[in-house]
Design a protein around this nucleic acid. Sequence first.
DNA 1: ATTATTTCTGCAAGCGCTTGCAGAAATAAA
DNA 2: TTTATTTCTGCAAGCGCTTGCAGAAATAAT
Lengths: 332, 332
Amino acid sequence: MITLKHVAELAGVSTSTVSRVVSGKDVVSKSVKDKVEKAIKKTGYIPNVNARALANKNSTSIGLVTPDLSLAFFGTLAAGVIDAADELGVTVDICNSRGKDQNNLNAVKTLIKRGFNNILLDESHCDESKILELCAEVPGLVLMNRFIPQIAERCVCVDNVTGGNMAASYLLDNLHNNIAFITSNSEIADPFDRIHGAKIVMAKHGIDTNNCLVAQAAPTIDGGKQAVLELLNKSDEFTAILAYNDNMAVGAMNELQDRGVRIPDEISVIGFDDLAISTVCRPALTTMHYPIREMADYAVKLSLDLTSSKKTLGTSHKFIPKLIERSSVSKI
Amino acid sequence: MITLKHVAELAGVSTSTVSRVVSGKDVVSKSVKDKVEKAIKKTGYIPNVNARALANKNSTSIGLVTPDLSLAFFGTLAAGVIDAADELGVTVDICNSRGKDQNNLNAVKTLIKRGFNNILLDESHCDESKILELCAEVPGLVLMNRFIPQIAERCVCVDNVTGGNMAASYLLDNLHNNIAFITSNSEIADPFDRIHGAKIVMAKHGIDTNNCLVAQAAPTIDGGKQAVLELLNKSDEFTAILAYNDNMAVGAMNELQDRGVRIPDEISVIGFDDLAISTVCRPALTTMHYPIREMADYAVKLSLDLTSSKKTLGTSHKFIPKLIERSSVSKI
DNA sequence: ATTATTTCTGCAAGCGCTTGCAGAAATAAA
DNA sequence: TTTATTTCTGCAAGCGCTTGCAGAAATAAT
């Protein structure tokens, strides 16, 4: 293993000097710098991350804490984070909490103790207070897919209200005035925000939004099936379903189709997320694209920015989803 | 930050002693051990991984190099690896190579330079020789989803021949004698092995396997569509399709359905992998379950085992896939 | 009781890198 | 030319943990 010392000897300077040119944090005269760089190239020196992390009292990795990588959404998120980190020369340590809040929080604490200053956390259930505590402790902690006003500039999330709004607008524009909602029973803000956003436009169109049909279930394919059944029990008047996410949308479509209703002719369905599944199902699902990769990219930059001296990304920022038109909504 | 020193002071012993009880590698008298453990508990001490890695000249993390986490297969693999590692108290660093072989290999080299002794590599395209080189350099390198005889005991993969065999048997048992293959155009052994396995049983059933219908394409949904089109151009006699994986199977089903052929009444389809998509599509896909999580678990244990003194997992081992019966194959 | 063994524990050096401090060298000012 | 500044560079300590070595303590053997 090539160390600073080897390079220093070859270049005829001290290790401090080499360190300085490597880290670039301090001024080194041009001539010496050249010598050192030549030596580095010649030896193929690569800094030892562990030693560096130890001396710097921090890790060169960023931590990603996420519920379940085997779900397409989080897998895509992780891929985005890794790719973005990679470009900046930092590596990613991933914790998979298997959906349990407490695991998430513990994972964060472990990362902290391991010296991580940069942590991306996707945790939508636990108390805000706990997250605020963590944030106070770790300046480089970025919260993903959840918004907490007090730390707005450290939240990387999608504008769910606008998303719901856009989805409903599209439905309305295509003359579906009787919209039913299939939403998640998770106690998180997203589903409410989306419905809220939808109701805003609906109200503008003169629709009474007080007794909209709403069915809650798990945000999964099966949940979608259950929810649509509940809807069906309550009424048979709706002509469109605005689903919390693609999984629920697909579940609903499947269930509906299994019962002989034609989509989109009899009932239109719109999803949210734009995961692979939305192109696979039949009819292909019209859905709101969730810009996961952009968000992942932004999140790692934000985290790194937060722990660097010169902050450039300071302001709060919500990502706007985008309508992807496919075939699950009947058009005028 | 609590360090060894703090614990040592509290326990009234030297740091070496604390180190020894923490690492458990050396004998410490029961009484002292108790004292130290009490002190550790009291202080909430957590070893600094960086210092440890530096002193040990190795990392406590294992590295996972995988093509693309946003694909369900690899996401599941990663989740399995992380979970398994977690249970053993080691963390996982993931590299996402975005499908480029060279990235994969570079990622491995970088990990090596960073002091990783345990690396799980999923690389199915590059030259065997390169992988063998890497293996020689890193004793804890485990190859996933690919088999190379020279390092058989370090390969964690599925028995593709048996898998193909089982899939074909199921088709045959249900009286589909005219089987067409949709396979991957990747230059890897898996697709050949699966077809090879299938042909073995077919031959046993007296079928001439020399001019089987075979269409190659990318191992994706679109690839499946293309491939089935190619098949259709060549013949209209086959009554069953054995697809390389679920994605291709679903693509094929979609394309077929779009052209009005009923599945499984007119054509049966069987997939491979048992990803989420296979339960989503209609009809739900009968497929061979790929025991990814078990394999992930085995791989991390194997890697750790390889770098530990007492080896226990030495022998070569292939995982056997399992038929998951759903609705895409018509039954007798 | 004395010596030989065995078992523990602490010392101190070292893993590779960073950085405050101070002296050397170069440049500017007087 | 001398003195004051500024710019570089090296020294050495330190980040937290591990471990070979040797001395101390405990146990066994004589």
